[in-house]
């Protein structure tokens, strides 16, 4: 692994000052993704600013019903937090289906939001990749693309977003708080991850020197239940081929409000407003769920090896909805 300089920050102001809007510097928290990337020579920071001492390890219930999560809360602590288990079970389930115990013990909330794709072309410096080296081409478009995205792709990039946690957050609705040289700003979680388009190297709405300090979940939908269904090649410690986070509130037999987000199929954690529109006000029946699944995947584009993901995702949506509505 190439070497870098190392600085330890004690608070948020010191961390952003040490980073100093320097393109060659990175923040490090858990490091489970960043260190892997540096070992692979995919990320080449000249300086790391360690933010692990920042006072961002708390989870706070706000008066308006929202839940404010510190950037450094580990995936394990977030998944087992009593408010998450009680009011946001879809998030707990999503986190616990991801990675391994060891990784969840160390990986942080903001680090999970920041994690990079597992596309093998991106992870191999010998292969072309527009995300890693703009203009070099995309090895996956004509290559082995069984694990790649079918939603939100472009002719520059079809890399799939790997996170489960982010899919849960996408369904629940959340706000990211960002601290940087320009001060503090809030952005909706849904706007944070960017579609690849013609600039796949731009993965998120974060400028040099900016640091995510909190993720605040929207207040839970009154009476809603949630479920995360993840389909993968093996039962544990594997990325999703297709996953569905479903949050549904029923009014009798009718769906009052529904949130649908998908993992394993999108170039970003995928919120399906199309599926939600197809569910709203409709009876909670398999026929309705099927229509929602069709709506969610209507814009899907398959490549050589990943056409199976389209019916798989539809089945995930239908089954997640059947499960979540049967709980009532």
């Amino acid at each position: 692994m190439r070497n870098f300089d190392y600085q330890r920050a004690g608070d948020v102001a010191e961390a952003t000052a040490l980073h100093g809007n320097d393109h060659s510097a990175d923040f490090i928290a858990g490091g489970t993704n960043l260190i892997d990337m540096v070992k692979l020579d995919i990320m080449r920071p000249e300086r790391l600013v360690d933010v692990n001492r920042l006072p961002l390890t708390g989870i706070e219930s706000l008066d308006d019903g929202r839940l404010k999560i510190g950037a450094l809360v580990t995936n394990t602590d977030l998944a087992y937090h009593e408010r998450v288990l009680a009011d946001y079970p879809v998030l707990s389930e999503a986190i616990l289906t991801g990675a391994s115990t060891q990784l969840r013990n160390v990986a942080t909330t903001a680090g999970n939001v920041m994690q990079r794709t597992r596309c093998p072309y991106f992870r191999n410096p010998a292969r072309p990749c527009n995300k890693r080296e703009p203009g070099s081409g995309c090895g996956a478009l004509e290559g082995i693309n069984r694990n790649h995205a079918v939603l939100g792709t472009s002719d520059q990039c079809i890399a799939v977003h790997p996170s489960d946690m982010c899919v849960g957050m996408q369904a629940l609705g959340a706000t990211l708080t960002i601290e940087g040289p320009g001060g503090t700003r809030d952005i909706p979680f849904e706007d944070y991850h960017l579609l690849p388009g013609d600039t796949p190297e731009r993965e998120h709405d974060l400028n040099d020197g900016e640091l995510i300090t909190h993720v605040t979940l929207d207040a839970p939908i009154d009476g809603a239940r949630g479920h995360y269904l993840k389909l993968r090649d093996r039962m544990s410690y594997e990325f999703a081929l297709a996953s569905c986070a479903a949050v549904v509130a029923l009014d009798g037999d009718a769906i009052r409000e529904a949130r649908i987000a998908l993992g394993g199929v999108g170039t970003k954690p995928w919120r399906s407003h199309e599926a939600e529109a197809a569910l709203s006000g409709q009876p909670a029946t398999e026929e309705t769920f099927q229509k929602a699944a069709e709506a969610a995947m209507a814009g899907a584009v398959a490549h050589r090896d990943n056409a199976f993901k389209i019916p798989l995702a539809k089945q995930a949506i239908v089954r997640a909805l059947a499960t979540v509505t049967a709980q009532s």
């Binding site: 190392y6 490090i28 858990g30 490091g31 489970t32 260190i35 892997d36 070992k39 692979l40 790391l48 394990t76 391994s100 115990t101 060891q102 990784l103 013990n105 160390v106």
Partner: peptide, 22 residues
């Protein structure tokens, strides 16, 4: 690379991959 777990140690009592932390 954090994939096999052979390097697992406890850090402040919790299991962690010692290959993925400085």
């Amino acid at each position: 690379h954090g994939q096999c777990g052979a390097c697992t140690v406890l850090i402040d009592g919790h299991s962690a991959n010692s290959c993925l932390t400085l």
